[in-house]
Write a protein that binds this DNA or RNA. Sequence first.
DNA 1: GCGGGATATTTTGAATACAAAATACAAGAC
DNA 2: GTCTTGTATTTTGTATTCAAAATATCCCGC
Lengths: 220, 220
Amino acid sequence: MQLEPIAVARRPLHDDLVEHLRDLIVSGTLAPGSKVQEQALCDQFQVSRTPLREALRSLAAEGLVVLTPRRGAAIAEITRKDLEEAFPILGALEALAGELACKNLTDAEIATARQLQAELVEAHQIGDLAGYSAANAAIHTLILDAAANPLLTQMLKSLDGRVRRARYMVNLSGVRWSAAVAEHARIFEAMESRNGDVLGEILKDHIANKLNALICQLES
Amino acid sequence: MQLEPIAVARRPLHDDLVEHLRDLIVSGTLAPGSKVQEQALCDQFQVSRTPLREALRSLAAEGLVVLTPRRGAAIAEITRKDLEEAFPILGALEALAGELACKNLTDAEIATARQLQAELVEAHQIGDLAGYSAANAAIHTLILDAAANPLLTQMLKSLDGRVRRARYMVNLSGVRWSAAVAEHARIFEAMESRNGDVLGEILKDHIANKLNALICQLES
DNA sequence: GCGGGATATTTTGAATACAAAATACAAGAC
DNA sequence: GTCTTGTATTTTGTATTCAAAATATCCCGC
């Protein structure tokens, strides 16, 4: 009998460290620019330097950590320049995701999107920022899943990690929030009519507007 | 007096290993799918396992190596599915590069591009594949440099590494080569008129055509 | 008191050592 | 002869150790 191979989850320490550290960095607990002492983290996590150093290398590949030879590791800063470089890429990739998604979207998925869109509007109306964010993220995920391109998903996730810290710093201003809701209405429309090119364009603009709002807030 | 800080090149072993291994992988010397024994590579490079393992992790982040816990490393295979996932992303990013480049292109750069375009056509006419590839790569680099987005450059480089091995396997067929030359004429035109949207579209199509040609050849 | 330089301490880079898991091998049951 | 099961070997994951470079400290001259 041919049994299905099941991957037993025996994760190396390394992987746990990467995840844990990533959370600490993205959430801002480890402040951007702060120097990272290997031994300090080793003591905190009760592991030896070997797996920790491997974890730092992985995070460096993601751009969350900067390694300087013989001078140790530091949490990557996030400058205006970084945002201005990252957001156009985010926009291009989100647009691609939208295009691809339109080729695959099922009626069921569009129904789900309609539901999420309603939740998003509702959350905005009652000023529920957490609910809005959740609906927003869910729509994102829905599009990305429909795009059915794992590599694209992975790259967007990694890129998102780089800029999420900046988003943590600012909260949606009232006027930008309203504009974002309006944009989401158009996003849903394009999904419903499965117009990939239009959806791509809107998503790209959506991201570009996000960048502008972010920069405005960071400057002040 | 404030002196500019100059980074003295004291590269860790790790970095050398990454570069060397990447060459071996991209050039196909380390065959896709082949299992990598840590000790064997350690013996070959005369280093200990510590820096070698770190190098393997970096390459895994690039997608050139696959690490399976407790089961070691293997050179990443490159399947048709991988190509079909990677090329649309490549297309979207190249298109973005083209758009951005059009905003910055100087007259001098366009003159250089004209020269390269002439070399490319010339190389095609006399059947000089190496010369063609060189001109092709130079035009690419010119656009990417003009885009002036280091993160985009880095991501494209990494993504290119994933698929370059496939390109090594097939050589440009006559008909595809002619088509590519025709596409390059349109690429130059769009650059000359600094029409970012058009340039983006052409580049995107250019990449999509490349994928089709590649898949046709791989199937046979 | 301040600056320069020698020395001590810390910290990183790399090698080695050890434990646990996976693979290879061999002996015995059927 | 083939399959199972137990054992030996290899290979990976992690810890520890050692060396070299970077940083901090202290002492001395001025």
